[in-house]
Amino acid sequence: MAIAVVTDSTSDLPGELALQYGISVVPLHVNFGDKTYRDGVDIEPDEFYARLQSGKTFPTTSAPSSGAFIELYQELARSHDGIISLHLSSKVSATYASAAQAAEEVREQGITVEAVDTLQASMALGLVAIGVAKAAAGGASLDEAVDKAKSLSSRATFTGLVETLEYLQKGGRIGKAQALLGSLLRIKPILALVDGEAHGIERARTRSRGIARIKSLVAEAAPLEALCVLHTTDPELAKEIAEDLSQYAPDGKALAARLGPVVGTYLGPGMLGFGMIRAE
């Protein structure tokens, strides 16, 4: 029996890829007023971003309960030797803590789960999960899978050009990106998750220059092991950028994906960016 790979919905892993690689995805929750939605299950991105822009109530997000993980782990344990559970940076969410607690609880039932804090988000996490799933399919042991996950995570990057820092600030996740607010001039910030926290890494004066900068950040990081272009509300533009960057993708094809509601809550409409893993 092989090992099972679990991640959470902040990986923004497109459904077909999760299915293809046999990755189980546990949803976080988005709360709009008194309604709670499961990320990517109960609320469609189109509807979500429209409501986010209407700006009446600002959504909040919450981690899955340990119970949700326990149920999944028990289910997977019936057909797997061990489970690796890969999660969003513990510095911005309690998801990893919840998974780790669940792993601890099922241990008594003889179920082995390794929860890994990847310090990543969105498709940077998603690409790590895919890499680990490939290794698992190739017969990797749980220990080997954990090593693989750590190696991939350390080489992964999640970066995005945002229209405004407003959403990050409203959501209380502004972290070290706040420094960019110091500027009195209008700017388009480029953010990255560094050591698991949001940092402002660049400032562009216009969106088009920001996009050019995003592309050059990918070019500078090449050679790559995996690449996925990300957006919240610009599917066509994301596809175009993915084509432009395909030369840097290992098999000549860069993925494109949309940020789900949880990560989207903090980056807002108009975000463009990428998740990537540098080659070893």
Binding site: H29, T60, T61, A63, K91, G172
Partner: peptide
Amino acid sequence: GLSGLPDLTPGTRLTSIRS
């Protein structure tokens, strides 16, 4: 129920009051 809060790591809690 502060879906923001339980999902925050300790230490960042104090910043959670809306500006």
